[in-house]
Each structure stands twice: as structure tokens, then as C-alpha cells.
């Protein structure tokens, strides 16, 4: 079983949902992003998502757009992001996945990228603009290298599409909690609950809800019906709300809050 699934199982055994925390590599700088990710792991995150910034993040709202742009403006490339991950995964004891747009692994070559990600100790990848129906070449390389492949499902996904998503997803299925981009609107609980139930009826893979979860209360609400809660923009916002020197501290504070949320269902 994968380290990611293990993390969800452990959380379930503790009677709570798993907490998944997203932060981009290289923001506000590479060393600080590593410190923030470590702080998230130390403060209760069960799974980390490391964003590899892309020049054209069409699913992201202003917060993650700005963070990605700042990282790219530093001149960091995929090799730098991977180096940071290698050092991070050697230190923390929770699994980390890379989250990025498909253009990056596709252009680098799926085989090479899978080797590099696995070599950096990453447990899997989330490519939000790679639908399950286009995913065969990537899934093949991910299986070869032991990476989990997390796919997104939306409330507009047909049953056929959810079947396909469930079939190719390992680690967890990412249920999109609202119609929109990251970090703008608030999660739609009723739609999310229905979506989680539709996915659960098709697979035993855990289901985590992301997009629009910002607060402890929202985390608690989502944790009442999902196996995992994913928080991204709110954590990035915390990292950017002040001097870089205090970023890890601010991230730790928020993650502890969110962890209390997912534990209080």
C-alpha cells in the first residue's frame, strides 16, 4: 500500500480526516518554502503537496498565481524544486506529492519526470489539468516508478468519468469542492458531500476535498463527510502575510488550527 494511503488509514484509525497541506516550492524563497513545508508536517499535516510553479497557472486564483510568479522570478527551475523536495522528504515523516500542471512533466518527458520525482522521495503527483481520459502515458510511468497518481473529480463529472477517475487514482481521489479557481470562493459543502458519496460508491480509495477550504470551521465541516481535507491558498496566504523569517511560524499556527478542525468531527 502507498505511503499516502497509509497516512489516510492512520488518520481514519484515529477517528479523524487526514489533513493535506499545499505550498509552492520556492515561495517566498526556496529555503523558506522548505521550512514552511517542514513546519506544516511538524504541526499536524498528514500529507504534503509541493507545488512546482508553472508560468500559466490557469486553475489558480490570485494568491497562488502571485506566489508562483515570485518563485519563477527568483529563477528557480524544476531541478531546484526537486532538490528541495529531496532534502525535505529526507527530513519529514509524512508523504509528499508534487502538484503541478501537466505541461511541466510532459515537456520534461513523463519517464524522466517520474524518475526524478521518485528519486527525490516524492510519493506521487497531482496534475490538475490532466484528465483521466488523457492520462495513460503518465500513469504508465508513475506505476513503473511507484508514484501515486491522484486525479480530480468534480460535481459536473459524469458517472462514466468518475468510474475512470476512480480506476486510475491511487493514494486518494481529489474531489473539487467548488466551481472555480483556488483561493477565491468558499467550499460548497452540500455539493462536495454529494460528490464524495458518488466517488465512494465506486472505489475504496480515500476521497479528499479541496478548493475553498480556508478555516478551521470549514475543515471541520468537510472532515465530517470526507476522508481528507486539502488546504492550499489559505496556507500560502499565511506564509506571505509578513516577513519571510516568520513564515514557517505562521504556517505552523494555521496548520495546528486546521488539524484541530479535522480532528473535531
Amino acid at each position: 500500500m502507498s505511503a499516502v494511503t497509509d497516512a489516510f488509514t492512520r488518520a481514519r484509525d484515529e477517528g479523524r480526516a487526514a489533513l493535506v497541506i499545499y505550498l509552492p516550492a520556492g515561495f517566498p524563497d526556496m529555503e523558506t518554502s522548505r521550512a514552511c513545508l517542514e513546519a506544516a508536517a511538524d504541526s499536524g499535516a498528514d500529507v504534503l503537496e509541493v507545488g512546482f510553479p508553472f508560468s500559466d497557472p490557469m486553475m489558480d486564483g490570485p494568491i497562488i498565481q502571485a506566489a508562483s510568479q515570485q518563485a519563477l522570478d527568483h529563477g528557480y527551475g524544476v531541478a531546484d524544486d526537486l532538490d528541495m523536495c529531496r532534502s525535505l522528504t529526507g527530513e519529514v515523516d509524512v508523504p509528499a506529492l508534487v502538484m503541478t500542471y501537466v505541461t511541466i512533466p510532459d515537456t520534461r518527458g513523463f519517464a524522466r519526470f517520474a524518475d526524478e520525482a521518485a528519486g527525490a522521495g516524492l510519493a506521487g503527483a497531482i496534475l490538475p489539468d490532466l484528465p483521466a481520459g488523457e492520462s495513460d502515458p503518465w500513469v504508465r510511468e508513475a506505476r513503473r516508478t511507484g508514484l501515486d497518481t491522484v486525479f480530480l473529480a468534480s460535481s459536473v463529472s459524469t458517472d462514466d468519468r468518475i468510474d475512470r477517475i476512480a480506476e486510475v487514482s491511487t493514494g486518494f481521489v481529489y474531489a473539487v469542492g467548488l466551481m472555480g479557481v483556488t483561493g477565491v470562493k468558499d467550499v460548497a459543502s452540500d455539493d462536495s458531500r454529494t460528490l464524495v458519496e458518488r466517488i465512494r460508491s465506486r472505489t475504496s480509495t480515500p476521497v479528499a476535498v479541496g478548493l475553498g477550504v480556508k478555516t478551521r470551521q470549514q475543515a471541520a465541516e468537510v472532515a465530517s463527510f470526507a476522508d481528507g481535507v486539502i488546504v492550499g491558498s489559505a496556507v500560502v496566504q499565511a506564509a506571505s502575510d509578513g516577513e519571510p523569517a516568520g513564515a514557517a511560524h505562521r504556517v505552523a499556527d494555521l496548520v495546528r488550527e486546521l488539524r484541530a478542525g479535522v480532528g473535531s468531527r
Binding site: P131, E134, V156, T158
Partner: peptide, 13 residues
């Protein structure tokens, strides 16, 4: 192909 977020799958269909 169709390399779009799943949330657009309905609109594209």
C-alpha cells in the same frame, strides 16, 4: 486533445 480541469468536462461535452 482535452487537457482541461475536470470542472470543465461538462461544458466541453
Amino acid at each position: 486533445g482535452q487537457f482541461v480541469p475536470e470542472a470543465l468536462s461538462g461544458a466541453i461535452t
